[in-house]
């Protein structure tokens, strides 16, 4: 079991009063799972994803990552958890604009303390894996949207995470490019990495083995393929 969330809620304090983004959600994620989370805007999909990725901590309930209670971990420990075990892919890619594709992918490995030779070897493998070996020395501004998302996926896979979290990964891409990215994510999942995708795109959601539908911060239904 990678993630074991039991009755987790997340309440945000707002000037107009507290807002409950996620309410009493219970969810387990195992190695190799492929989960899609769907639902209308503002239903709490992204907040749930951020809690699963240890970016946000729950207000109530218990969330165990690899058996560790995330709410009891320090910022440094949660950061280390993200660095070593969780990969993120976002709609807007979030690549560092001053670094090349190679350097963007290398960054998490560098922070994890991987030796230089091993890093370079791994960067080559990952860029080949996402089909961008020829664009290794290009900066994000020199890449198309689909290419930037491939680099972002390669970066997310840099330290061999057990869990890959994707928030609308095809949201800014055209249909063809989106399908290519979806196929790439399928391939990542088939290699054993658990994948959780938040998406509005039915085609992308239908690729998952479990589809969760959220409404008002709660999981309304779960379909298993």
């Amino acid at each position: 079991m990678i993630v074991d969330a039991r009755g987790v809620s997340r309440v945000f304090s707002m000037p107009a009063g507290p807002v409950t983004a996620v309410r009493e959600v219970t969810l387990q994620i195992r190695d190799g799972d492929h989960i899609a989370v769907r639902g209308p805007s503002g239903c709490g999909k992204s907040t749930l994803l951020h809690m699963l990725g240890c970016v946000e901590t729950q207000t109530s309930g218990t969330l165990l990552f690899d058996g560790q209670d995330v709410s009891r971990l320090s910022d440094a420990r949660r950061s280390l958890l993200r660095l070593r075990h969780i990969g993120f892919v976002f709609q807007r890619f979030f690549l560092l604009p001053m670094l090349t594709a190679r350097e963007n992918v290398e960054l998490p490995m560098s922070e994890a303390g991987l030796p230089r030779a091993a890093r370079q070897q791994r960067v080559r493998e990952l860029l080949e894996y996402v089909g961008l070996a020829a664009r290794a020395d290009h900066r994000p501004s020199q890449l198309s949207g689909g290419e930037m998302q491939r680099v972002a996926i390669a970066r997310a896979l840099a330290n061999g995470p057990r869990l890959l979290l994707a928030d609308e990964p095809t949201g800014e891409l055209d249909e063809t490019t989106g399908a290519q990215i979806a196929a790439l994510l399928d391939r990542v999942n088939q290699s054993g990495t658990a994948l959780v995708i938040v998406t509005h795109d039915p085609a992308l959601a239908n690729r998952a083995s479990r589809v969760l539908t959220m409404r008002d911060g709660q999981i309304e239904s779960e379909q298993v393929a």
């Binding site: 970016v55 910022d75 440094a76 950061s79 280390l80 958890l81 993200r82 660095l83 070593r84 969780i86 993120f88 979030f94 690549l95 560092l96 001053m98 960054l107 998490p108 922070e111 970066r155």
Partner: peptide, 13 residues
């Protein structure tokens, strides 16, 4: 944005 990305990647504060 750069700092935010570094935090998401897993760099501690």
């Amino acid at each position: 944005e750069t700092v935010g990305v570094l935090r998401l990647i897993g760099l501690p504060v």
